[in-house]
Simulated assay, not measured.
Amino acid sequence: MPWSPPGGGFTVKVPEGWSRTTQGSATVFTDKFNSVRVERVHATTAPSVNSVKATDIPAISTASTHFSLVKVTTVQRAGGRAVLAEYHADSPPDQVTGKRVALDVQRYAFYKAGAGEAVLTLSGAVGADNVDPWRTVTDSFRWS
């Protein structure tokens, strides 16, 4: 299902039937411990591997439980170049049981001059086979 943030700027395909919530400026689509977080960020320069390591990763690490960085690289997707940060972290506690699940996370930062940055963060339980679904979501990203 194609989705655009309020005010437009880009589209991305998100799984149908997943619940949608708003967390500040981000929209999060979830199904159990799988999620796709979509956020538009004000930026005047393109992210780089070094800027993500210096700025974004420390903030993510501080906000996460059991954070472990895997790598930060530049990747090409159908909608353009992105900086990809891969890491592990625990999920937020389940509202009923309080249980946390270890997650694999991929965070893509896309940039377009004049439009800013679009950040797609995909997460799922460690070891789950999310390669194809995550590739479908990230390859569907398009600036409008």
Rank of each mutant, 00 (worst) to 15 (best):
W134E: 06
G98P: 09
D139N: 13
L120A: 08
K99M: 11
R100T: 13
L103Y: 08
Q106K: 09
F110Y: 03
L84W: 04
P93Y: 10
D90C: 09
V105N: 13
G124P: 02
R135T: 15
S140F: 00
W134I: 10
Y111K: 00
E86D: 12
D139H: 09
G98C: 05
T136E: 14
D132Q: 11
K99H: 14
T97M: 03
R81S: 12
A82R: 06
R81C: 09
E117M: 14
R81I: 12
V137I: 13
R100G: 02
Y108N: 07
R81Y: 08
V131P: 07
D132E: 13
V105S: 08
E117P: 11
A85T: 03
T138N: 08
F141R: 04
D139Y: 07
T97F: 03
D139L: 06
V105I: 12
G127A: 09
W134S: 14
T121Y: 00
V131H: 03
D104F: 01
P92E: 12
E86M: 14
D104K: 09
Y111R: 01
Q95L: 14
L120H: 01
A113G: 03
V105C: 09
R100M: 12
Q95H: 13
Q95E: 13
A82W: 05
P93W: 07
G116D: 02
G124H: 11
D104R: 11
Y108W: 06
F110G: 04
Y108M: 06
G116P: 00
K112S: 12
R135Y: 08
R135F: 09
L120G: 03
G124W: 10
T138M: 02
V101M: 09
D129S: 13
Q106M: 10
A118V: 01
G116S: 10
A115H: 02
A128S: 12
R135M: 11
A82G: 09
L84N: 05
V83Y: 00
A89N: 05
G124A: 14
Y108C: 09
N130K: 03
R100W: 08
D90R: 04
D129V: 08
L122G: 13
R135V: 12
D94A: 04
D94M: 03
D90W: 12
V137K: 03
L120K: 01
A113S: 13
A85Q: 05
L84K: 08
A102F: 10
P133N: 02
A118W: 00
W134A: 15
D139W: 07
A82P: 11
T136C: 11
